[in-house]
């Protein structure tokens, strides 16, 4: 056990920084996945259920196999399966994607809680982090710079998607399918398979996001694990105006703002903690209000998206 000196006020920016890295990863992975899905013209509101199902499946698999990465893979596959369900059902005529999403949220949550009952108590092997803070003698900085590979994968993915949407063939195809099914058909693109695939990928990433929660931070499985991260991540995609890089900033912002409350309390500022804890929501709304204007509602929105279609 090490004796640690308190950081004092430096703890607040450090906590926000560290919190941004620790807490943002599920938001990042889920929002990038949803970004792909929404670019194809569908919205999957069920990612909250997918995330929870992924968290449970990942934890259970890690426990059973002894490999946390096997857990991550299992979480992704379970997520992909739920994505496939969403993708297929929404391909039926007249079926509303938002409604199916809400149903899948309920189904995924219920199934995860049902099957996850025996997983609350045992300890599963966790994902390891890369100690980027090795150069520092401060344990706080060392801890803050414990970075999980999934976070790095998320960053790389955001950059790759940013370019892929613009400059690659499949990125263009995805966007055309999402902007106008008629135009896509005219160009000979396969609309439904593209959308189903986009939803499957979105589900996979959301499942992995869930595995991050159960296998790294906070690193446990229980029924209170997700406090709406999945649904917030879907909202962040709209906030980020369907731009992968903006999803990254939005996730970091949200994660960092979430660390503000606990960090201030650790300093001894304990009154009004409910209001500090609401900081991520206030901040996000504030930015939306400040940057929005009546004419820019739909800037960047895929044309076929039911959520924003007017």
């Amino acid at each position: 056990m090490v004796a640690v000196d308190g950081l004092g006020w430096w703890g607040v920016p450090l906590a926000i920084f560290a919190g941004a890295i620790r807490v943002s990863t599920p938001y990042l992975l889920v929002s990038l996945g949803e970004c792909i899905t929404e670019k194809s013209g569908r919205i999957n509101l069920g990612l909250e259920g997918v995330l929870i199902m992924g968290a449970m499946a990942g934890y259970g698999t890690s426990l059973a196999t002894g490999s946390a990465w096997a857990g991550v893979l299992a979480a992704g596959l379970v997520g992909a399966l739920l994505g496939l369900l969403h993708g297929l059902l929404c391909s039926l005529r007249r079926v509303n994607d938002i409604a199916i999403g809400i149903s899948i949220m309920l189904f995924g949550t219920g199934l995860a809680f049902f099957l996850g009952k025996p997983l609350v108590q045992p300890q599963a092997p966790m994902l390891n982090a890369i100690p980027f803070g090795f150069w520092s003698s401060s344990p706080q900085i060392q801890s803050a710079l414990q970075i999980n590979p999934l976070f790095l994968i998320g960053i790389v993915l955001a950059v790759v998607l940013h370019y892929a949407f613009r400059y690659t063939r499949w990125g263009m195809q995805l966007r055309i399918v999402g902007d106008s099914a008629d135009a896509a058909l005219a160009l000979g693109l396969r609309v439904l398979p593209t959308r189903i695939l986009a939803t499957v990928i979105g589900g996979f990433l959301a499942g992995v996001g869930g595995a991050f929660l159960s296998l790294y931070y906070p690193g446990s499985w229980n029924e209170g694990l997700s406090s709406g991260q999945g649904i917030i991540a879907v909202a962040l995609v709209i906030f980020a105006r369907w731009e992968p890089l903006r999803c990254l900033w939005a996730s970091l912002l949200f994660g960092g703002a979430g660390a503000l409350g606990p960090a201030l309390q650790a300093m001894g500022i304990t009154s009004g903690y409910y209001l500090f804890n609401a900081a991520p929501y206030v901040l996000t709304l504030g930015i939306l209000i400040a940057t929005g204007s009546p004419s820019r509602t739909l800037a960047g929105a895929p044309g076929e998206l039911s959520l924003v279609r007017n």
């Binding site: 709406g228 909202a235 709209i238 709304l285 939306l288 209000i289 929005g292 509602t297």
Partner: peptide
């Protein structure tokens, strides 16, 4: 203000 009502109402709810 052009704030999407879905995300707006969710944030306001929290």
């Amino acid at each position: 203000r052009g704030v999407n009502e879905t995300i707006g109402s969710l944030l306001l709810s929290y």
